[in-house]
Each structure stands twice: as structure tokens, then as C-alpha cells.
């Protein structure tokens, strides 16, 4: 099994504030990892460091052969291998669903319009939104927008997908439809790092759980640590989540 993502003693500071205090973990290809922890524990920051939306102050990150902290890193090549989905969808409001998906295919992969369209169609079908191809984001529900955002990332055929609390803005019914898409992806063998508060999803879909606390990896293991936590902090966290 090859290692897809590897963090070694990663330190991230915002000015005085040290947010990641030596974070290390490894994720193998095809693995689905749930990243959990209290608000402010540094989960989003860790994800953002992985695709270099933030630069790190110490340690090293390796993603699919890219050394992220290397000043000579080809950032665009790194980002071609990583897909990221945000809590707030971040679809481009002035573009239709098709245009949202086709933009990077055309601009980054240099496809022609019709080629890009042929790629967009099946990806959209995969998230169950074929009939919305010509809609604008504001015409869609939150859950549908989030599924389009997933499709937009998938279309680029990334090797790793990062999800940052992608269902937090959704009500339970819409949460379900997004989680189902993600579980499909997981079964299809996608390497995924999922920051989530959905413990049900973590139990069903994750091969492994990483619990972060105060900027450190506090506890890690299979999904069973959720029902059988080893540290008092995770125990307390699980109690709060229920």
C-alpha cells in the first residue's frame, strides 16, 4: 500500500498563536480518514496546510510525491492531485453548474468545451444531479450545491479528496444526500480526509479516525475508538457530540 499523504511534525503559527503543534499522521492510498475534534483544535488548518492554502512553519508534508513545504514546489501540480470541498460550497455564482465543473477542465487541463462537457455529464450523474446541469447555484438547495461542489472537484480526477465540514451548513435531510455521495466515493476507493462532526458517517465509512485536540493528534485508531475511547479528552468529546 502506498502512502498518499504524510505529515511529519507539522507546526503552523498565526503570528503568536501556535495552531498546529507538531502534527504527524500518514494516510494510505484508498483510505478514508475521519478527522475529528473540538472547534478550534486545528482540523481545518491541517487540511489547508495539506494543499498549501496555508504555509507551514515547521515539519514536512508529502502528498503523492509532492513536498509541500518545498519552496520550489509546483503548487498547481499539487492542487491537480488534491480536490477540496468547503463547508460553504464556494460555487461560482455567476456560472451554471456545467460551467462550474468545466472551468478547471478547460483552464487547467486545457480541454475543449465539448470535451469538458463530456467529462462533466457523468460526474454530475454520479452525484445525482444530471437534470440540474444548466441551473445556476442560487437555484439549487444547499445539499444540491454541495453535491455540485463535490462533482466539480471529482471532475479533475484528484488522487486525494479533502472535505472540511461539508454538511455543517445543511439540515439533516440534505446532510443525508451529501453523505451518501461521499460514502459512494469511499466505496469506490477514493483517498479521503474528512473533517466532520457526523459520527455516524465516521463509523460507517472511515477506515481510521484521527482525533485532534489543542493542535495535536491526541488519539488515533479504527472507527471503534469512537465507541471505546482511550483518552479522557476523546471520551468527553464523544459525550458532547451525542
Amino acid at each position: 500500500m502506498s502512502v498518499a499523504v504524510k505529515l511529519t511534525n507539522v507546526v503552523k503559527r498565526f503570528g503568536e498563536l501556535e495552531v498546529l503543534k507538531g502534527v504527524s499522521f500518514e494516510i494510505n492510498s484508498g483510505e478514508v480518514v475521519a478527522l475529528i475534534g473540538q472547534s478550534g483544535s486545528g482540523k481545518s488548518t491541517a487540511l489547508r496546510c495539506i494543499n498549501q492554502l496555508e504555509t507551514i512553519q515547521g515539519g514536512s508534508i508529502e502528498v503523492c510525491g509532492h513536498r509541500v513545504e518545498d519552496p520550489k514546489l509546483d503548487v498547481r501540480a499539487l492542487r491537480r492531485d488534491i480536490g477540496m470541498v468547503f463547508q460553504s460550497y464556494n460555487l461560482f455564482p455567476h456560472m451554471t453548474v456545467a460551467q462550474n465543473i468545466m472551468l478547471a477542465l478547460r483552464r487547467v487541463k486545457g480541454m475543449r468545451k465539448d470535451e469538458a462537457y463530456e467529462v462533466a455529464k457523468p460526474v454530475l450523474a454520479k452525484v445525482g444531479l444530471s437534470e440540474k446541469i444548466d441551473s445556476y447555484p442560487e437555484q439549487l438547495s444547499g445539499g444540491q450545491q454541495q453535491r455540485v461542489a463535490i462533482a466539480r472537484s471529482l471532475a479533475m480526477q484528484p488522487k486525494v479528496m479533502l472535505f472540511d465540514e461539508v454538511t455543517s451548513a445543511l439540515d439533516p435531510k440534505l446532510t443525508g444526500e451529501v453523505l451518501r455521495v461521499m460514502e459512494d466515493l469511499a466505496r469506490g476507493g477514493m483517498t479521503m480526509i474528512v473533517v466532520t462532526h457526523e459520527m455516524g458517517f465516521a463509523k460507517r465509512a472511515a477506515n481510521r479516525v484521527i482525533y485532534m485536540h489543542t493542535g495535536k493528534v491526541w488519539e488515533t485508531g479504527g472507527a471503534d475508538i469512537l465507541s471505546n475511547p482511550q483518552t479522557p479528552e476523546l471520551k468527553e468529546f464523544m459525550a458532547e457530540e451525542l
Binding site: N90, F92, H94
Partner: peptide, 28 residues
């Protein structure tokens, strides 16, 4: 700023992000 980030995450260059994502919205 998240619009810029979303475009960068898709691998667009800064200039492409500006051209395709930011400027059309800013124009309005």
C-alpha cells in the same frame, strides 16, 4: 476570499482565478 481559494484549489493560476472567477463578479 473563499472564491479565490476555491479557484486555486481547482488548480487555476492567480491570473485565471481573477479573470474567470473574480472579475466577472466584481464587474457587476
Amino acid at each position: 476570499k473563499t472564491q479565490f481559494e476555491a479557484a486555486e484549489c481547482l488548480g487555476l493560476t492567480r491570473w485565471q482565478a481573477l479573470q474567470d472567477v473574480i472579475l466577472p463578479q466584481a464587474l457587476k
